[in-house]
Measured scan of single mutants.
Amino acid sequence: VRQEELAAARAALHDLMTGKRVATVQKDGRRVEFTATSVSDLKKYIAELEVQTGM
Rank of each mutant, 00 (worst) to 15 (best):
V1K: 13
V1D: 14
V1G: 14
V1I: 13
V1L: 14
V1E: 12
V1Y: 13
R2H: 12
R2T: 10
R2F: 13
R2D: 09
R2K: 14
R2C: 11
R2E: 10
Q3C: 13
Q3E: 11
Q3I: 14
Q3M: 14
E4Y: 14
E4N: 12
E4W: 15
E4H: 14
E4V: 12
E5S: 08
E5M: 12
E5I: 12
E5W: 08
E5H: 08
E5N: 07
L6K: 01
L6W: 04
L6F: 03
A7K: 13
A7W: 12
A7P: 03
A7I: 11
A7R: 13
A7H: 09
A8D: 07
A8H: 07
A8F: 09
A8G: 06
A8S: 12
A8M: 13
A8W: 10
A9F: 06
A9D: 00
A9K: 01
A9Y: 07
A9P: 00
A9S: 03
R10L: 11
R10Y: 13
R10G: 02
R10Q: 06
R10W: 06
A11C: 09
A11L: 11
A11F: 04
A11Q: 13
A11V: 07
A11M: 11
A11P: 00
A12I: 03
A12M: 03
A12Q: 02
A12H: 01
A12L: 04
A12E: 01
L13Q: 01
L13G: 00
L13F: 05
L13C: 04
L13P: 00
L13K: 00
L13Y: 07
L13W: 04
L13H: 02
H14C: 12
H14Q: 11
H14N: 12
H14F: 09
H14P: 00
H14V: 10
H14E: 08
D15G: 05
D15L: 13
D15C: 10
D15H: 07
D15V: 05
D15I: 06
D15M: 11
D15Y: 05
L16T: 00
L16G: 00
L16V: 03
L16I: 08
L16N: 00
M17C: 09
M17D: 04
M17H: 05
M17P: 00
M17Y: 06
M17V: 08
M17N: 06
T18M: 13
T18H: 14
T18G: 09
T18E: 08
T18P: 00
T18W: 07
T18C: 12
T18F: 07
G19S: 03
G19H: 04
G19I: 02
G19L: 02
K20D: 05
K20Y: 04
K20A: 14
K20E: 06
K20M: 11
K20G: 08
K20Q: 10
K20H: 12
K20C: 08
R21Q: 13
R21M: 14
R21A: 15
R21V: 11
R21I: 13
R21Y: 06
R21C: 10
V22G: 04
V22R: 06
V22D: 04
V22A: 08
V22Q: 06
V22C: 10
A23S: 05
A23F: 02
A23D: 02
A23E: 03
A23T: 08
A23L: 02
A23I: 08
T24I: 15
T24N: 06
T24D: 06
T24Y: 15
T24A: 13
T24K: 05
V25K: 02
V25N: 02
V25H: 02
V25R: 02
V25S: 02
Q26H: 11
Q26K: 09
Q26F: 13
Q26M: 15
Q26W: 15
Q26V: 15
Q26T: 14
K27L: 13
K27R: 15
K27P: 03
K27H: 06
K27A: 06
K27C: 09
K27Q: 10
K27W: 04
D28W: 00
D28F: 02
D28A: 05
D28G: 09
D28R: 04
D28N: 10
D28M: 03
G29K: 03
G29L: 03
G29R: 03
G29F: 03
G29N: 05
G29P: 01
G29I: 01
G29M: 03
R30H: 11
R30K: 15
R30A: 08
R30L: 10
R30Q: 12
R30D: 06
R30P: 02
R30E: 11
R31L: 15
R31E: 11
R31A: 14
R31V: 15
R31D: 10
R31S: 12
R31G: 07
R31H: 09
R31F: 14
V32T: 07
V32I: 13
E33P: 03
E33F: 08
E33I: 11
E33L: 06
E33S: 07
F34R: 01
F34A: 01
F34P: 00
F34M: 03
F34T: 01
F34Y: 15
F34V: 03
F34C: 04
F34S: 01
F34N: 01
T35Y: 11
T35V: 05
T35C: 09
A36Y: 13
A36D: 07
A36H: 12
T37M: 11
T37C: 11
T37L: 11
T37K: 10
T37A: 15
T37R: 07
T37P: 04
S38Q: 15
S38T: 14
S38P: 01
S38H: 09
S38N: 15
S38A: 07
V39E: 04
V39T: 05
V39N: 01
V39K: 04
V39M: 15
V39A: 05
V39I: 15
V39H: 03
S40T: 10
S40V: 10
S40K: 10
S40E: 15
S40Y: 05
S40G: 15
S40C: 13
S40W: 05
S40I: 10
D41P: 02
D41A: 11
D41F: 07
D41H: 06
D41V: 08
L42P: 00
L42T: 00
L42D: 00
L42H: 00
K43P: 00
K43N: 05
K43T: 06
K43C: 09
K43V: 13
K44M: 10
K44Y: 06
K44E: 09
K44H: 07
K44Q: 11
K44R: 13
K44P: 00
K44N: 09
K44F: 06
Y45V: 04
Y45G: 00
Y45F: 07
Y45R: 03
Y45M: 07
Y45K: 02
Y45D: 00
Y45T: 02
I46G: 00
I46W: 01
I46A: 01
I46C: 02
I46S: 00
I46R: 00
A47Q: 11
A47P: 00
A47W: 12
A47S: 10
A47K: 11
E48T: 07
E48Y: 15
E48N: 06
L49V: 03
L49N: 01
L49C: 02
L49S: 01
L49R: 02
L49H: 01
E50I: 08
E50R: 04
E50H: 04
E50P: 00
E50Y: 06
E50C: 05
E50W: 05
E50V: 08
V51I: 13
V51H: 14
V51F: 14
V51K: 13
V51M: 14
Q52V: 11
Q52W: 09
Q52R: 10
Q52E: 13
Q52K: 12
Q52I: 14
Q52M: 14
Q52S: 11
T53S: 13
T53M: 15
T53N: 14
T53K: 06
T53R: 07
T53W: 14
G54Q: 10
G54C: 11
G54T: 06
G54E: 10
M55P: 10
M55A: 12
M55D: 11
M55R: 09
M55H: 11
M55F: 06
M55Q: 14
